[in-house]
Design a protein around this nucleic acid. Structure first.
Length: 848
RNA sequence: GGGCGGUUAGCUCAGUUGGAAGAGCACCUGCUUUACACGCAGGGGGUCACUGGUUCGAGCCCAGUACCGCCCA
């Protein structure tokens, strides 16, 4: 090591992420390690497509978690020698982005309608150029080893061509069609939105009872509704066919109050006999269920609410132009005037809202483009059933299949300006669907754009150059795995599987891991609007990227978890620990002539740490491959803190300071393998330490990932050292109990040659053929009386200890005295209990 | 309304096929031990939500109850 480097290492007693991370990252970028050649086949290569963050986005904790998981796997595979691509990109995020830019314009006093479509989309592009880059920087801060040179955007030219081809192809296959259908109309964004973008919330409304007179009779049918303002669009009243009260009315008519229209009384199973009076007004134009009933019975579909959220002319002169809320008040007033309002009561029910705009959804019938899903779903169901796509944890497989089995048509058109314009042109009665504008004059393109998820659905292959037959596709499709939040399992994952099979000829990934949701510290959802979000960049500033990555992986789980600051701190502690342990090793060893780890180390502790190292490598690798990141992080932590630092380094210190060449080989080799093992989780600190390592011949990011050498794992060595450690702890515990200051060396009678040397040293006991009064026996060694011993404390503690052991002995004796236990339990369990009993009795004897 | 998940130490979470409950943090007691106080050593702390059942034995399996959360309608 050069003097300057040595000096720096000597002086730096902490890992300082802030000063180092950017430099380390720049080194990786310079090396071009994240930008693989498109060579080889997808089978031999490793690839991952990042869930594209929204361009509107600021990196949030979900991205950070997802990125930490994917990067761990990507780095591990890259180090394992695979040609590895992790593709980065951004989603144009139709509604979200349009909303952001509209808000901006609004603050300048401009509406998008004033400047027009072209100027507006221009503004969005400008905005994208300005802010889109920040996502990239944020991923770099996290240390994500994505291919920054292959970045894609779901609205770039090549991608747009792929989208048009998909749409056209689906149309030609007959899956895409245009229809008047009930959609979730979002008055906020002035667009239809899909079922999946609707959130239901509990609301308390008034349930009104309205009397509908039956034609040619004195009878009235009382119907209950929370939406009296839609009654002008009623076209029937329905009762349950089993409902005897109304059996004779089926087929006759009643009269719609305020309007005077004759409404047929129909029978339909959907009607709940118990609810209200058992008679349901049917409004096919403004209610999803009523729409279904209406289609079943061939009812007329009337709209009294327009796309602007105001009452139309069909609602009648008195209500035309009113907002829905105003109309409700006025309709109730009118019903009172007519004397047909027979009841009002509070009613709690769930009401649909737009996830994006937050406004109450208005179910409307409108002309939209739809995609029929059954044919696309069938092979995607098969792929998951037969395991070509593996979804874990297992319960999500069921959720996926259940949703796919009941899949409904997908409304793919959106009344927005920002997005992929639907590739359909109209001229008079003619309709043309194609990838480019048709020949001839007078063609006008459809005004709508496609649902953002329509373009996200083809992400894994569109990013690789589909529909062209590119080297990238050949080398990296299908990808290997996907981590995702469960909320987009349907919106995104399912659709990628469908389009992947249909268009790219294979499933888009082999493994889907549905990760947990990290909640805010208080258990609420992390959300910008609630102000509960925790900024990952702030956490990185404070603790370093490695700490955040470790923390997120350590707190991740299959169930939702609260954000845990202590876990991030644990990550920071681990980084510091690695740093300092490395200082001890690197500053006190000479670069050995033989850089290999000795095959047959002489020292017991050397064989022990190498055994622990190799089994940790095996365990951590397996856990990461199983996506059990939390336990992988835990294993790393306890290996470094406990095995390596608390025990091995302490045991080996005298030899280290003596310059023992064999211990140097063990230490430097162990450090090399430990750094490489930890690198996928904590890339920065490991790379920084590697810079000081004498074996370094390039960046750690492309160093080979350790493969566990199982021949070094020795159960007998681990047991032997494990027992010696337990013994050391016993001696230390006894000392502490006896109130002996750490500086005082205790004297004990015994044969020191029966135990490893370090026991007495670390236990701070002088074991030998001493003479004197034995006051206690600890693990077979007689502690000699001395002035430092607090005999009162000792006697008190011995009494407590004895009580505990005796209780335990009684418990086990009871168990072994139970004939049923002895007869039925497996022999080894019984033997274990007997062994335990023996040990406790021995311990009791020792206490004297 | 249907489905899924959760309830374990003060907090956040682990807990393999049923053999007697763990981690990190917090807490208490020591320690300026020349890698690290973001450290070291030692220690206390749990009727595993509740009620039944199966079993020699249940945090784990079965049935039910309560509360919390999520998804779908």
């Amino acid at each position: 090591m050069e003097d300057a480097a040595r000096k720096k290492l000597e002086e730096t007693t902490r890992w300082e992420p802030g000063e180092t991370e950017a430099r380390i990252f720049a080194g990786w970028m310079e090396g071009g390690y994240f930008h693989p050649e498109a060579t080889g086949t997808a089978d031999e290569n490793y690839s991952v497509a990042i869930p594209p963050p929204n361009v509107t986005g600021v990196l949030h904790m979900g991205h950070a978690l997802n990125g930490s998981m994917q990067d761990a796997l990507v780095r591990m595979n890259r180090m394992s020698g695979k040609n590895t691509l992790w593709i980065l990109g951004m989603d144009h995020a139709g509604i979200a982005t349009q909303t952001v830019v509209e808000k901006r314009l609004k603050s300048e006093g401009i509406s998008r309608h004033e400047i027009g479509r072209e100027a507006f989309t221009e503004r969005v592009w400008e905005w994208k150029e300005e802010f889109g880059g920040s996502i990239r920087e944020q991923y770099q801060r996290l240390g994500a080893s994505v291919d920054y040179e292959r970045e894609r955007f779901t609205l770039d030219d090549g991608y747009a061509r792929a989208v048009r081809k998909i749409f056209t192809s689906l149309y030609e296959k007959g899956y895409i069609y245009r229809d008047h259908y009930m959609v979730n109309w979002d008055p906020g964004s002035q667009s239809a939105i899909s079922d999946l973008e609707v959130v239901n919330e509990e609301r308390t409304d008034t349930l009104y009872s309205v009397d509908y007179p039956v034609e040619g009779s004195d009878q009235v049918l009382t119907v209950a509704t929370v939406r009296p303002e839609t009654m002008m669009a009623d076209t029937a009243v329905a009762v349950n066919p089993e409902d005897e009260r109304y059996a004779d009315l089926i087929g006759s008519h009643c009269i719609l109050p305020l309007v005077g229209r004759r409404l047929l009384i129909i029978a339909d199973d959907h009607v709940d006999i118990e609810f209200g009076t058992g008679a349901l007004k049917i409004t096919p134009g403004h209610d999803v269920n009523d729409f279904e009933i209406g289609r079943r019975h061939g009812l007329e579909e009337i709209s009294v609410i327009g796309e602007d959220g105001r009452m139309t002319a069909m609602a009648g002169k008195r209500f035309e132009g009113m907002t829905v809320a105003e109309a409700q008040v006025e309709v109730v007033k009118a019903l009172k005037e007519e004397g047909v309002l027979s009841g009002e009561e509070e009613y709690v029910h769930s009401v649909p809202f737009s996830e994006r705009s937050g406004e109450r959804i208005e179910p409307l019938i409108s002309l939209q483009w739809f995609c029929r899903m059954e044919e696309l779903a069938a092979p995607a169901i098969e792929a998951v059933k037969d395991g070509r796509v593996n979804i874990s944890p297992g319960q999500w497989k069921g959720v996926y299949l259940d949703w796919m089995d009941n899949i409904r048509p997908w409304c793919v058109s959106r009344q927005l300006w920002w997005g992929h314009r639907i590739p359909v042109w109209y001229r008079g009665d003619e309709t043309y669907v194609g990838e480019t504008k048709p020949e001839g004059e007078g063609w006008i393109q459809d005004e709508d754009v496609l649902d953002t998820w329509f373009s996200s659905a083809i992400w894994p292959f569109a990013t690789l150059g589909w529909p062209d037959d590119t080297a990238e596709l050949k080398a990296f499709y299908p990808t290997d795995f996907l981590t995702t939040a469960r909320e987009i399992l349907f919106l995104w994952v399912a659709r990628m599987i469908m389009t992947g099979i249909e268009f790219a000829g294979d499933v888009p990934f082999k493994d889907v891991y549905v990760h947990s949701v990290i909640q805010a510290r208080d258990g609420r959802r992390m959300s910008k609007s609630l102000g509960t979000g925790i900024d990952p960049l702030g956490e990185i500033d404070e603790h370093g990227a490695d700490a955040l990555r470790f923390g997120l992986l350590a707190m991740s789980s299959t169930q939702d978890v609260r954000y845990s600051d202590p876990k991030v701190q644990q990550g920071r502690d681990l980084a510091t620990k690695l740093w300092n342990a490395s200082r001890l090793i690197l500053l006190n060893t000479e670069d050995p002539a033989d850089r290999t780890i000795p095959d047959q180390p002489i020292a017991l502790e050397d064989r022990w740490i190498l055994s622990r190292l190799e089994s940790t490598i095996a365990t951590v690798t397996r856990l990461i491959n199983e996506y059990d990141f939390a336990h992988a992080a835990q294993e790393l932590y306890s290996f470094v803190f406990s095995d390596l630092c608390d025990w091995y380094l302490e045991i080996a210190k005298p030899r280290i300071y003596d310059g023992d060449p064999e211990v140097a080989r063990v230490l430097l080799g162990t450090l090399e393998r430990t750094l490489a093992l930890a690198h996928p989780v904590m890339p920065f600190v490991t790379e920084a330490i590697w810079e000081y390592h004498p074996y370094r011949d390039g960046h750690l990011v492309v160093h080979s990932f350790p493969r566990s050498e199982s021949e070094r794992i020795s159960q007998s060595v681990e047991t032997e050292v494990g027992e010696a450690i337990a013994l050391t702890r016993k001696l230390r515990g006894w000392r502490d109990m006896a109130g002996v200051p750490p500086k005082i060396l205790l004297q004990a009678k015994g044969d020191a040659s029966t135990i490893p040397e370090f026991v007495a040293r670390l236990g701070r006991v002088d074991i030998g053929a001493h003479k004197g009064e034995v006051v206690a026996t600890v693990a077979g060694f007689g502690i000699l009386a001395s002035d430092e011993l607090d005999m009162n404390a000792i006697n008190e503690r011995i009494a407590v200890r004895r009580g505990k052991i005796e209780a335990e002995i009684r418990k086990i004796e009871g168990k072994l005295g139970n004939q049923k236990f002895v007869d039925n339990a497996p022999a080894e369990v019984v033997a274990e209990e007997r062994e335990k009993l023996e040990q406790l009795r021995r311990e009791l004897d020792e206490l004297g």
